[in-house]
Amino acid sequence: MKLDSKYFDKIRVKPSAEKKVADTIPQCDWPDCPRPGRHKAPMGRGHEGKFYNYCPAHVQEYNKTYNYFSGMKDDEMQEFQKNSRLGDRPTWKLGQNATPNASNVRRRGAQLRDDPFGLNIGAAKQPGRHPSGRALRATELKALQTLGLDDTATADQVKAQYKTLVKRLHPDANGGSRANEDTLKAVIQAYDHLRSSGFC
């Protein structure tokens, strides 16, 4: 490209643009400091997202004395740090509060209302759980689907459905036809799996 080209002049930064950038830099927020405040420093707890603008010397001085927890008691500070590690979400010890009782509902009413994934509802209403409260494995759910049942089926319903399907699919009931042989095998394997897993 030639230095005297008309295109070269169009991409060159004009000196006036540099002056405008310098004019947009705020003055240092430190009292009686005339220098430009190019460095941001957080204002502190309760002012999240807000910053001071300091020059390099004053931002270093501010950082040496900055304490996010100033004015907090030790137990409040520890509680804040614990909640921050957990993402400010409620937690319980393993095996406790599995289902909300009346006192838990009163104590955690706001948490239950703000529960888009249904994590705090009773065990009987959770998908993948049997009405008895027993968690169903994926293989058990698949076996129930093979038998044409859903996850709310009881052991008696499984046995009755198994007998019905075997009578309907057996070659003796179909005049010796083996067209349903694969389906019959799948039904028998599904029932055997549910029996061996203790479902029925």
Rank of each mutant, 00 (worst) to 15 (best):
K2A: 05
L3I: 01
L3H: 15
D4P: 00
S5W: 07
Y7P: 02
D9Y: 15
K10W: 11
I11K: 12
K14Y: 13
S16H: 12
E18V: 04
K19I: 03
K20F: 03
K20M: 05
A22Q: 14
D23S: 09
D23I: 01
P26C: 10
C28N: 06
D32L: 01
P34A: 11
R35N: 11
G37D: 08
G37F: 04
R38M: 06
K40A: 13
A41W: 10
G46P: 12
G46Y: 12
H47G: 08
C55N: 10
C55F: 11
H58Y: 08
H58T: 09
V59W: 08
V59C: 09
E61Q: 14
E61D: 04
E61I: 04
Y62L: 05
N63F: 00
N63A: 09
F69Y: 15
F69A: 10
S70I: 03
S70M: 09
M72E: 13
M72H: 12
M72A: 07
K73H: 13
D75V: 00
D75H: 12
M77V: 08
Q78L: 06
E79C: 07
E79N: 07
Q81T: 02
L86C: 03
W92K: 10
L94P: 05
L94D: 15
Q96R: 12
N97R: 15
N97C: 05
A98W: 10
T99F: 03
A102C: 01
S103G: 02
S103F: 04
N104D: 15
N104Q: 15
V105T: 06
R106D: 08
R106I: 06
R106Q: 11
R108G: 03
G109A: 08
G109H: 11
A110P: 09
A110S: 06
L112V: 02
R113A: 05
R113Y: 08
D114A: 03
D115W: 02
P116F: 07
F117Q: 12
N120W: 09
N120S: 09
A124K: 09
S132M: 01
L136D: 07
L136V: 02
T139G: 00
E140L: 00
L141R: 14
L144R: 00
L147D: 09
D150N: 14
D150F: 02
D151F: 07
T152G: 04
A153F: 03
A153V: 08
T154D: 14
T154V: 02
T154P: 02
V158W: 06
T164C: 02
V166A: 09
R168M: 09
H170Q: 03
D172G: 14
D172M: 08
A173V: 01
S177E: 13
D182W: 07
A186V: 04
A186C: 03
Q189P: 00
A190L: 05
Y191F: 13
H193L: 02
S196T: 00
S196K: 00
S197T: 03
F199E: 05
C200F: 01
